[in-house]
Design a protein around this nucleic acid. Structure first.
Lengths: 150, 150
DNA sequence: CAATCTGGTTTCATCTTGAGACCACTTGTG
DNA sequence: CACAAGTGGTCTCAAGATGAAACCAGATTG
């Protein structure tokens, strides 16, 4: 049996998150959804994903409460896929991936999309992790506490 | 041909990042690396991953400059896998996933690991996106600028 | 120096993915 | 209203990816 392993029962939120959105296409679909893509065919042509894959991904993401379907906003009888509150919560995951990609995967001259402040049009600031009392924290300043062994 | 699609050439840093670390196991390996795991067998038993998979993942991550090998720190002749600077750059991606998981995938009563400030032992603050001039930004305050069509 | 541990590689069965044919229902066009 | 085209899928099949387990060489331990 080579069924894909499930991480759902891990006591680690990272593992559980990856169990839900950790596959090849999910985050790309969600990224496009943030960019305003809503229709099946838009996702399909934009991502170049096989229709079958897209259909199952959209169904899974919907079942997991990350997308929801809505009647088409243009008045036609078709459906649209829109991010739920839970799905919109993934915004910072996408931003973190984007900033890492920008910093480590592109040459300065490479063309790439940029995330800008809608109001001013300027690139957004780098994400920063802070402590509860607002000190700047690097990875070496933190520690993962295992779940309480109640 | 059902070869896995490559996203490397996308003009989108999110896609390119997912091309590098977007598969099932990579981020989990990296998470464990942040938690101090270094040895093959430690990764293997900790993750419950098949040895073959782990071997190829470690090789890929090393080739891609996210991990590097070093002589074992305990003086034996074995090797260790350690995050590079580029790999450590993924810290905020892991944190973002963790915070999303905590917020949306757990009941308040569920046992789970927590990320704390090493110095004080208190949970870290929520990540926040800010504009260049330090205003707080939500997803609706931002926009993705397509690459310049030079 | 024999037993065991570490860090893999290989093999095989099964699952997932990608590509494309096919289909029902909706819309647009005349 | 009739019909062509568009939308949103499902189904099938070949090939790639994954998981489990056997196997192995070199390092370490007793």
């Amino acid at each position: 049996m080579a069924k894909r392993v499930s991480l759902w029962n891990a006591g680690c939120p990272v593992a559980r998150a990856l169990d839900v959105i950790g596959d090849w296409w999910s985050l790309l679909i969600i990224r496009d959804a943030f960019d305003g893509v809503r229709r099946f065919s838009e996702f399909q042509t934009g991502l170049g994903i096989a229709k079958g894959m897209l259909a199952t991904r959209l169904r899974d993401l919907t079942e997991r409460g990350i997308l929801e379907t809505a009647p088409a906003s243009d008045g036609t009888a078709y459906r649209e896929y829109v991010l739920t509150e839970k799905g919109r919560g993934l915004f910072l995951v996408i931003v973190a991936l984007r900033q890492w990609g920008e910093a480590h995967l592109y040459e300065p001259t490479d063309r790439r999309s940029r995330l800008v402040d809608r109001e001013v049009g300027a690139p957004v600031a780098q994400l920063v992790l802070r402590s509860a009392d607002d000190r700047r924290l690097g990875w070496y300043d933190t520690r993962v506490l295992k779940p309480d062994v109640t």
